[in-house]
Design a protein around this nucleic acid. Structure first.
Length: 653
DNA sequence: AAAAGACAGATTGTAGAT
DNA sequence: ATCTACAATCTGTCTTTT
């Protein structure tokens, strides 16, 4: 508990220049500077070589790890003193501690400093005690109540009580998200209600899981993060995540918020000028605004060909990956390109600041599919799988050619989605067209074409349009015929599974560089596998699949992949499971220990809260499904850390 | 109960015009 | 530089049918 007290205090001190209440309060100049350049989490990462062990419910375990990581990450020599002073210790004390312990052993120095800190706070008088905790950011009222309950002797239990108060208060606020103004109301009432709430929480949360969760929450709170941040992080990353992963998450979230705050700050600065000198300054503000956004925000390329396509292979010859991103293991993450603003910035920031490769599959096949791919694969010497797919609608669906009118100039289909047009619609179109013997007037053509583009209709007879058959979608996406057919899957589910899948030729092109690197095959971790687009792509490339761990929530999809696996005479092992959220580090490490880790981690997390077609719950990356992205990150991070430790061991041996 | 059918705009970015 | 029109979009929910 002492350690927490200290860290909490030092964080608060470091952040004293701004921020209050629920807002993220990290406003030191250095951090804002980092944020303003859109720089990565990698600079902020608290990742040491040996912090991937799960904390076993001990309240101190998590934060001790962080302290170790932080200290070992800092270079020794003259910077040591600055480092600890920056943590909130006085220069005098640090100097003494360094003298006592030597410069080398930063852990020991920290321990000594903590002892100093603890003994000094233990000698405080009562009023000093109140000030002490108020200085930490607790309200006077709360502190008084806590001291009353615990006496003024035991500072540890006082702090514990305060943290519990805060946690309860915050969770109350979170539950009643009526508005930010409510906090003052709660401040008045929480003390009276507290005993009841306490009883409730104790009776409800007595399982190990819950107490571990609570401990982590408290650990994070004591590190200076708000309980709100901490609980969001635990929700996103899973409650069994290590403190390191959780702090990673929070840091990245803070980055995002800081970026927004910075923008607002600048706008605030310029806004008064706009008022006194309307037109001119208005323009200037826009320019400034756009200037920053252009630097910050990820923009979609036009044409959307990424780092090259089979027909145009040499767009970008070389790229430099951020160090934290360099594999092995290799990773490949996919989602819709046309996501709400800021989504790709967040995704990229989490995935080690790798720039997404945006590719439209219309450069690979006869249907468009605008997707972003974040991966750390080499991009030279890619090659397409053979046979090359049909490149136009005519080639893909030759029987439609006969009925295709002159005025329908489409050569490519639009994105293949999960829903198809109704029979009613195609009937309306037919009736509209039947009024005319020859070519319909422009207005009708326009109507028909709009519907054709919206629903991907194709001509199957005179005046007769139809949605694509599941077989045709299969073929267009590069899957073997009947891949999703039979075995108990309905037609509707086929459309749904296919609509949510990879375009195999596109993905295979990107993955093709692995063939020479892994002639004996790879171990694959496939998250959100769907109908196995990645597996099919690798198989079609002739890359042997040794061990495949496939995680997919839909039972019919798992069955499709299993069936494909058996039909293609695979020599490897397919392990499938349902829920990425249930895939914890213990299970992962057990798997990785058994066959030597993963060579590739593929995943396309749910897009339904990002996709433009969603009228109801397009909530962005924090949506109930799309937030599973954070599980991709969590799991990838575990795999990367495992690989790092594994490689270090290999070097030693 | 499961499957199929019908229908529900908004958020983006872009190209062209002013 | 702004404005405007236009195009694209791995969907959800309710109702009807099987």
């Amino acid at each position: 508990m002492r350690i927490h007290k200290f860290i909490y205090k030092s964080m608060k001190d470091a952040n004293s220049s701004g921020g209050e209440g629920d807002d993220i309060d990290w406003n030191t100049d250095d951090e804002l500077e980092i944020a303003s350049y859109g720089l990565p989490s990698s600079n902020m990462r608290l990742r040491g070589g040996e912090i991937n062990a799960e904390s076993g419910g001990e309240i101190n375990a998590g934060s001790t790890e962080i302290v170790k990581a932080t200290t070992s990450a800092v270079s020794l020599s003259s910077k040591t003193i600055d480092h600890f002073v920056g943590m909130g210790f006085s220069e005098e004390i640090v100097a003494r501690a360094v003298q006592e312990c030597g410069e080398e052993n930063t852990d020991l120095i920290l321990e000594t400093l903590l002892k100093y800190s603890a003994s000094s706070s233990a000698s405080s008088s009562n009023s000093k005690l109140v000030d002490h905790f108020v200085g930490m950011g607790f309200s006077e009222e709360m502190v008084a109540k806590a001291i009353q309950e615990n006496g003024d002797e035991n500072t540890d239990s006082i702090l514990e009580t305060l943290l519990t108060f805060t946690a309860v208060e915050k969770s109350l606020q979170a539950q009643n998200q009526v508005g930010s103004d409510l906090s003052s109301e709660y401040e008045g009432s929480f003390l009276d209600d507290f005993s009841d709430i306490d009883g409730f929480s104790e009776s409800e949360e007595t399982t190990n899981c819950a107490s571990d969760k609570e401990n982590k929450l408290l650990s994070l709170a004591s590190m200076g993060y708000t309980v709100e941040e901490a609980s969001i992080a635990m929700e996103r990353c899973g409650s069994d995540s290590t403190i390191a992963v959780l702090t990673d998450f929070i840091c990245a979230a803070q980055m995002a918020k800081a970026n927004d705050a910075l923008l607002e700050e600048i706008e605030e600065k310029v806004r008064p000028k706009k008022l006194c000198n309307d037109h001119h300054k208005h323009k200037k503000r826009r320019m400034l605004d756009q200037g920053i956004r252009e630097d910050e925000a990820i923009r979609l390329p036009n044409p959307m060909i990424g780092f090259g396509t089979p027909s145009d292979p040499d767009c970008v010859i070389h790229r430099k990956l951020p160090e934290a991103a360099v594999g092995p293991p290799y990773f490949y993450y996919e989602n819709v390109a046309l996501a709400p603003k800021g989504v790709w910035d967040t995704i990229s920031r989490f995935l080690y600041d790798v720039e997404p490769e945006f590719v439209d599959s219309k450069y690979f096949c006869a249907a468009a599919r605008k997707r972003g791919y974040v991966h750390n694969l080499p991009i030279n010497n890619r090659f397409p799988v053979l046979p090359l797919p049909a490149n136009t609608i005519y080639e893909a669906l030759p029987l439609t050619r006969r009925w295709w009118p002159e005025w329908d100039t489409r050569t490519k289909l639009n994105c293949l989605q999960t829903c198809v047009a109704s029979a009613k619609l195609t009937e309306r179109i037919r009736k509209a067209l039947e009024k005319y013997d020859n070519e319909p007037p422009y207005s009708v053509q326009k109507y028909v074409m709009d519907e054709c583009r919206k629903w991907n209709l194709v001509w199957v007879g005179r005046n007769k349009l139809a949605p694509l058959e599941p077989d045709e979608v299969e073929m267009l996406l590069g899957f073997p015929r009947n891949h999703t057919r039979g075995g108990g899957i309905s037609r509707t589910d086929r459309y749904k599974s296919l609509g949510n899948s990879f375009q195999v030729d596109t993905v295979a092109y990107h993955l093709s560089v692995l063939k020479d690197m892994f002639p004996r095959g790879i171990n694959l971790l496939s998250l959100f596998s769907g109908i196995g687009g990645a597996e099919v792509a690798l198989h079609r490339l002739g890359i042997p699949l040794k061990n495949v761990v496939s995680v997919e929530i839909s039972e019919v999809n798992r069955s499709i992949v299993r069936s494909w696996w058996e039909q293609t005479n695979q020599r490897g092992t397919l392990i499938d499971m349902a829920d990425v959220q249930q895939l914890n580090s213990d299970r992962l490490e057990q798997l990785m220990d058994s066959f030597g880790g993963f060579d590739l981690v593929v995943g396309g997390s749910p897009c339904n809260n990002l996709a433009g077609s969603n009228r109801y719950t397009r909530d962005g990356l924090e949506g109930s499904h799309s937030s599973l992205f954070y599980d991709y990150f969590r799991i990838l991070d575990i795999v990367k850390n495992w690989a790092q430790v594994y490689n270090e061991k290999k070097i030693v041996v």
